[in-house]
């Protein structure tokens, strides 16, 4: 895995414009995804201890102290029922984000580089146009001239906020 701070293999001539959108690629199960950075707060190693939350679904890892935040750690791969990755050598990371005044962390199997793409390289999908079996597919990647290596082979841009909102809605709707 490349360092999250190294840049992509974009041609030096085609440097990102001022409108470029920051994004990060990651793996959930066998699938590679990207997400816009503007929905994220931090990319951190997973917490050492996650306290299990009583009677929660299997995709809830637990609550943890990350830096000074009390964070609910979710495993979207299990939520999406994604198959386990082929390789057993996984380097897991968490993306933290603020949702409804609380901090959520999303566990990913592997985190790629933070990179920049031009806005017209992302084809945003409105919720009503998203596939029924993947309502959190927020957009598609349409490389313009040069393919950003980090984003090669991604399934699309995941609507992380929507995904987390769905998780929280389930947690809120089902009481212990």
């Amino acid at each position: 895995m490349s360092s999250p701070l190294t840049n992509s293999a974009r041609s030096p001539d085609a440097g990102p414009s001022s409108l470029a959108v920051g994004c990060v690629s990651f793996t959930l199960g066998k699938q590679r995804w990207a997400a816009r950075l503007d929905g994220l707060r931090r990319v951190l190693p997973p917490p050492e201890v996650c306290i299990p939350i009583p009677h929660s679904p299997p995709w809830v890892c637990g609550m943890a102290l990350m830096e000074t935040d009390i964070v609910t750690v979710l495993d979207p791969a299990r939520f999406l029922d994604a198959q386990a990755p082929a390789s057993s050598s996984r380097q897991r990371m968490v993306f933290t984000m603020t949702y409804q005044d609380a901090v959520l962390a999303m566990l990913v199997d592997d985190c790629g580089a933070i990179t920049a793409v031009e806005p017209d390289e992302i084809v945003d999908l409105l919720p009503e146009h998203r596939p029924e079996d993947l309502p959190w597919l927020g957009g598609l990647y349409r490389p313009r001239q040069t393919t950003t290596l980090e984003l090669r082979g991604i399934a699309g841009f995941l609507d992380i906020t929507g995904l987390m909102a769905a998780c929280v809605a389930i947690l809120e709707s089902e009481s212990a």
Binding site: M63, A64, V168, E172, E174
Partner: peptide, 24 residues
């Protein structure tokens, strides 16, 4: 304080020990 969805599952608050250990 913890979010409501944790309260609904039986976690009222969180507390952190002096050693930085989180407790539910």
């Amino acid at each position: 304080q913890v979010p409501n969805y944790l309260k609904r599952r039986g976690i009222r608050y969180a507390s952190v020990t002096a050693r930085g250990e989180l407790m539910a």
